[in-house]
Amino acid sequence: MHALRGIDLEVAQGEFFALLGPNGAGKTTLINILAGLSRADRGRVEVMGHDVVRHYRPARRALGVVPQELVFDPFFTVREALRIQSGYFGLARNDDWIDELMHHLGLTDKADSNTRTLSGGMKRRVLVAQALVHKPPVIVLDEPTAGVDVALRQTLWTFVGKLNRDGHTIVLTTHYLEEAEALCSRVAMLKHGTIVALDSTRNLLNSAADKHLRLKLDPDELPVSLQPRLSAQEKGSFTLVIHDYAELEGIMATLREAGAAVREMELPQPDLEDVFLQIMDRH
């Protein structure tokens, strides 16, 4: 049994990178190896040029990981947890940055509350803050928005976006593909422990095999010669499959000849979810 096999991946400094894949694809295993929580049987992983096993100190200093599980230490308040975490990285006087982190993540009111008493969303914020106490150049977020409300999602992405603009490299895993599409410049898709797609978000979107055309017609009837293209039909709206936008002209001509007037026309853009499902189907 191999959780991962033949992964060859390089994320450039300053990238906003998405690691996508179904549950059990190996995303968290890959992150755990990167963070030194798991050990790979073979191969090597570097963070900012530091081997994560042999030079674990600089490698871990360069890395901040927001774990997927909602973990917390019930003995401490938010501020204590952040001070302790700073201490582990050798930062004895880190209060200015801790205050700033709490401010950006909306935690200031909760600074002296025990982490045990916080709501799930607040605990998630504390985890983000803990991962950032040492200002790591590389930040890994493992499904940070799973089960999180809209307000936190916005706070989080605003803050992470700012960090990315300031030069931090961001690696994100998520099942919300619209997040990855909006934020990430490059995407790797994993399935069964191997990389099945690795490209810029734009190229992946353009690679979508099928494009769609949505029409509302008057009369509400699709000419027979266009029936083979029909992929969906609901409430007087027909969705047709096209392989190339050049085919549009032919379709328009067919409609004209059949005496069908176009009431509404839409060319829905393929989103990352479509591409993701196509790629997962193929492998």
Partner: peptide
């Protein structure tokens, strides 16, 4: 307790030998 609750990662992620 740290292992059961998972917060042992707070100790395992930093550069502690």
């Amino acid at each position: 307790q740290s292992k059961m609750t998972g917060n042992i990662v707070f100790v395992l992620l930093p550069p502690i030998s």
